[in-house]
Amino acid sequence: MATGRTDPQRRDRIIDAALDLIADEGVAGISHRKVAARAGVPLGSMTYHFQSMEELLREAFGRFAATIVALFEERLGAAGDPDEARAAVVDLVHDLSSGDQRQLVLTHELYTLAARQPAYRELTRAWMRRSRDILEQHFPPDTARQLDALIEGLSLHRALDTEPHDRALTAEAVARITRAG
């Protein structure tokens, strides 16, 4: 195995491994040893790159939040008018609630930490602020706040419901909040 100097991706692999473990076992199941094994790095790399498990968790959840924000930017950045922005919000809800459960689990592990620990609450607040900033490029601030909550709520309901609602119901909810339609 390469040393830290010749393995510039090691830190990133550790963060990715931590996210994978959290998705598989939850925050309670994570340890330095498990993360090192999953990342394929020596155990000593953990303390070389991260002073504590808290630092690793904050970095990992920060990276995760950034991927969701990037999805917001991708979807809403392409919208040229309010109707396209509404359609982009509908797409977001359905993208965030479809596919594997990894994203859902990571989101809720972060929310659980945020409910208990101020450092994670700040991370989630920053994530929400960034999401709302993107939404505010198309909608007034109060509407953006409501849409952000709608995206979270509908995504959760669609992901967990045994009979998730269709796009038409999502589009109707978005239209009502944005007073269109």
Rank of each mutant, 00 (worst) to 15 (best):
S131H: 02
G99V: 03
V90K: 01
V105Y: 06
R121N: 05
P8K: 09
A119I: 07
E74D: 12
A88F: 10
G44T: 09
A65G: 09
Q51P: 12
V69Y: 09
S52M: 10
E109M: 04
L76D: 05
G62E: 00
A17Q: 10
I151C: 07
E73G: 09
R102T: 13
G29F: 06
L57C: 07
L169E: 12
E172S: 13
F50D: 07
L96Y: 07
R86H: 03
V174Q: 00
A2R: 14
D148F: 11
A28C: 07
H49G: 03
L43V: 11
R10P: 01
A70F: 00
L76P: 06
M53S: 06
V93G: 06
F64L: 11
A88M: 07
R38A: 09
S98E: 13
G62P: 06
E136I: 00
Q117K: 10
T143E: 08
E122K: 06
D148G: 12
R167F: 11
G29Y: 07
R121D: 03
H165Y: 05
L150G: 03
Q103I: 06
L21C: 08
T124A: 15
E25P: 02
F64Q: 11
A115C: 04
L96A: 05
G44P: 01
V93F: 06
G26D: 02
Q117D: 13
D148K: 01
V90H: 02
P8H: 11
R176I: 13
R11M: 06
R121P: 04
P141L: 14
P141A: 15
T170R: 03
I14Y: 00
L160C: 08
Y111F: 14
L160A: 04
I14A: 01
K34L: 14
W127L: 10
H49V: 04
P164G: 02
H157G: 09
H32R: 09
S31Y: 01
R116I: 05
D7F: 13
R10C: 08
D148P: 08
E109V: 14
D95R: 14
G80S: 01
A114P: 10
E109S: 11
A171R: 10
V174N: 01
S45A: 08
H94E: 12
M53T: 12
P141N: 14
H49Q: 04
D81G: 13
A119P: 11
D81K: 04
A18F: 10
Y48W: 06
Q51T: 14
E163H: 13
Q9E: 15
G44E: 07
E136L: 06
R75H: 10
R5C: 00
L160V: 15
F64S: 04
D100C: 05
R121M: 03
S97E: 01
L96M: 10
G44H: 05
R102V: 09
P164E: 00
P141E: 12
R75I: 02
R102D: 05
I30C: 07
L43R: 13
A66L: 07
L104M: 13
V69G: 11
R132H: 11
R86L: 01
T67I: 14
V93Q: 02
A23R: 11
L147I: 12
S97W: 02
E25W: 08
D20S: 15
I151V: 15
I177N: 00
G77I: 04
I177R: 02
R145S: 09
